[in-house]
Amino acid sequence: MNNIKIFTNGLFKENPVLILLIGLCPVLATGSSMNDGFGMGIATAFVLISSNLLISIFRNFIPNSIRLPVFIIIISTFVTIVDYVMHAYMVELYASLGIFIPLIVVNCIILGRAEAFASKNTVKSSLIDGIGMGIGFTMAITLLGAIRELIGNGTLTFFGRELFNLSTSINFQPVLVFIMPPGAFIVIGFMIAGVRWMTKNKG
């Protein structure tokens, strides 16, 4: 597999959220606005890329029988670093993501990529795989957040700034249920259906 293929694999063909349907808990829980979704995506992508990198570097030194505990320690170290750095320097985002930051540890995507890819491939391709999967995850969660925020609150926020507000500009009445828990399930359902419909039409 060449590098471009590895990269686009995570974006489209094996998008972790929309195609493989893994790592859904943080997607549904924190994707209630574009801003939070993007923040969660970047935090997860950072952990994914770093752990992929480190695991592929040391993959020949880790005895096979204890590889899972070692992976878990490496991943939880990066997660805790993200946790504290966000708490110190991105306070608002940290407050809205809450418990889902430490829970990146149990995100199936990260352990899954460590086990299925980084522990068997070279440093370079593991890095590319991590970046591809990370962007794929971030895209999906940001899109979900944007759709929910737009319908449920009439706004779009990005980098902590409100881009526009439909409820004040064109008097749009937001559909509150979309930023509540049921909205997350319904929107992701239609997103997956949309992806399937498009790939089927392509042939």
Partner: peptide
């Protein structure tokens, strides 16, 4: 999957 998610939403 899609219908399952939508059902969970309801």
């Amino acid at each position: 999957a899609p219908i399952i998610f939508i059902t969970a939403g309801i």
